[in-house]
Design a protein around this nucleic acid. Structure first.
Length: 483
RNA sequence: GGUCCCAUCGACUAACGGUUAGGUCACCAGCCUUUCACGCUGGCAGUAGGGGUUCGAAUCCCCUUGGGAUCACCA
């Protein structure tokens, strides 16, 4: 049987990094086995809908490279792929369940439900008491029909049998079993006519031919309800795989509280897609542990659900930054240049010479994590009013260093070719003839030309700044700081 | 609190009964050097505790402890 998996977010906001990992694992699994990946939008809670959320979700998924074969924006043979467009389907299956006695009508108001819970001594016991509340069992068939005929508000609840072990196999966790005495008569159809997650998700997974349900561990406690539904419908259950949670530093479920969790935020910060996906993929699963950097195709080939960890993984971005740098270093100069160009535009810097921009980006790629840092890290590459580090100035500018640099400036002034090699050659020669170490000469140069103690190789830097500008900076500096 | 799930360095993880418990990030030291980085070399650091089973346990079983998830007309 062909593998069919789905990622089923609800459109209540941005794509969460945990959601991305779930989507990614579904994707890797589908690709590995030549199956289909489905995107389904679970929008049955009309109170939590967020405008454009579906578009944002799709946008983040596309950015991450998580492609799906069927979905709301591309269609497919099992549509519609938005739950609010499938109401008739749920109605039909709910009727079936009521007919077979596995679900029933209940007419309690929300206030009555609240009162029932209030009256319990155990504040944690929120289970619906079928025997005393207002439903088709306590009311009887005639009264029930009368209420329905009069258009009374109602919900449909799952008729959970007593004292029955529900067991299922989880691909990651093995055997799981729960007694039905611990399961509530879950509402399947809300009074607004929309299904709850539990009903919709089971009906959709079945009607869409889903073979493997790969989702977050937070769903584990409600899976027995779903298994019960499959049983009542007489359907075979799909294979379940409950993924470990992504955690905050304090080990609680990853949330907004302690930093960014929206995929979009990481994208905006400047993380490279491949680096981010690589990092996310290795949170909870690891192919061999002898490497860290994997291309997406490799991840697909190596993916194995049974090797996914059981324990949660702390989402710590220190390693992500390292990965980002690894990927940045391997990017070709042209790509780096294009990225830098758009960053320069944000600063209003001129970047017409794309060859030069690419060279600059390439020069600094090992010194930053994000390309966006370059305009400020190396502002002297783009403007003439770069700041002068006062400590560096104090350390490397005095009459001695001035006297040492003055003749060298004249040598540079007479240079025909202001290339790295030429500059290096004459500077080394000067170092020898003046009997000074290269470091002693280069620091004053760096001070004058860049204003700061850290940066790329000096001769590369000089070549990129250009002869004219270098000479002007020397002259201006001498006249300004004299000594 | 009930139910369910989980437990290897600070973090991500490898070791599917036999290893001096391995790798990566972070951290520390050294090397390289034209500063900063990169890179290279080395170091610090872990099987939660207790019982079993076994010739042999991080690995299998039980208990304890700890952590987490969940308990809505939310997903």
């Amino acid at each position: 049987m062909k593998v069919r998996v789905r990622f089923a977010p609800s459109p209540t906001g941005y794509l969460h990094v945990g959601g991305l990992r779930t989507a990614l694992y579904n994707y890797l699994f589908a690709r590995k086995y030549g199956g289909a990946m489905i995107l389904r939008i679970e929008d049955t809670d009309r109170t939590r809908l967020v405008e454009n959320a579906t578009e944002m979700l799709i946008d983040s998924l596309k950015w991450a490279g998580v492609e799906y074969d069927e979905g709301p924006d591309i269609g497919g043979d099992f549509g519609p792929y938005v739950q609010s467009e499938r109401l008739a389907i749920y109605q039909k299956y709910v009727a079936e369940l009521i007919g077979s006695g596995h679900a029933y009508y209940a007419f309690d108001t929300q206030d009555e439900i609240a009162a029932m819970r209030e009256s319990k001594t155990d504040s944690f016991d929120t289970k619906y008491d079928r025997k005393v509340m207002k439903n088709q069992f306590t009311l009887g068939p005639e009264k029930t029909q009368e209420l329905l005929a009069n258009g009374a508000e109602y919900v449909v609840r799952l008729n959970v049998p007593e004292n029955h072990e529900v067991r299922f196999q989880d691909l990651i966790r093995g055997d799981v079993s729960v007694n039905t005495n611990d399961i509530d008569d879950q509402i399947l159809l809300k009074s607004d006519g929309f299904p709850t997650y539990h009903l919709a998700n089971v009906v959709d997974d079945y009607t869409m031919g889903i073979t493997h349900v790969i989702r977050g561990e937070e769903w584990l406690p409600s899976t027995p309800k779903h298994v019960l539904l499959y049983e009542f419908f007489g359907w075979l259950t799909p294979q379940f795989a409950h993924l470990p949670l992504l955690l905050n530093h304090d080990k609680s479920k990853l949330s907004k509280r302690q930093g960014s969790v929206a995929v979009e935020d990481f994208r905006e910060k400047g993380y490279l897609r491949d680096a981010f996906v690589n990092f996310i993929a290795l949170l909870g699963w690891n192919p061999t542990a002898d490497r860290e950097i994997y291309e997406i195709e490799e991840l697909i080939g190596l993916f194995n659900l049974e090797k996914v960890n059981k324990g949660g993984a702390v989402f710590d971005t220190a390693k992500l930054d390292w990965m980002q740098q690894q990927y940045l270093k391997d990017l070709p100069a042209e790509s780096l240049g294009t990225m830098l160009e758009s960053e320069l535009a944000k600063h209003g810097y001129n970047s017409k010479d794309s060859t030069k921009t690419a060279a600059i980006a390439h020069l600094f790629r090992e010194r930053v994590i994000f390309v966006s840092e370059i305009p400020t890290f190396a502002s002297y590459m783009f403007v003439d009013d770069y700041p002068i580090d006062s400590e560096y100035l104090a350390k490397h500018w005095n009459s001695d260093t001035r006297n040492l640099i003055l003749p060298l400036i004249e040598i540079y002034r007479n240079l025909d070719s202001f290339s790295h090699d030429e500059i290096a050659a004459v500077t080394k020669e000067y170092s020898k003839s003046s009997n000074k170490k290269m470091g002693e000469i280069i620091h004053p140069l760096r001070l004058i030309l860049t204003g700061k103690p850290n940066g790329a190789g000096m001769f590369d830097t000089m070549q990129l700044i250009g002869k004219e500008k270098c000479i002007r900076r020397f002259d201006d500096f001498i006249s300004k700081y004299g000594v």
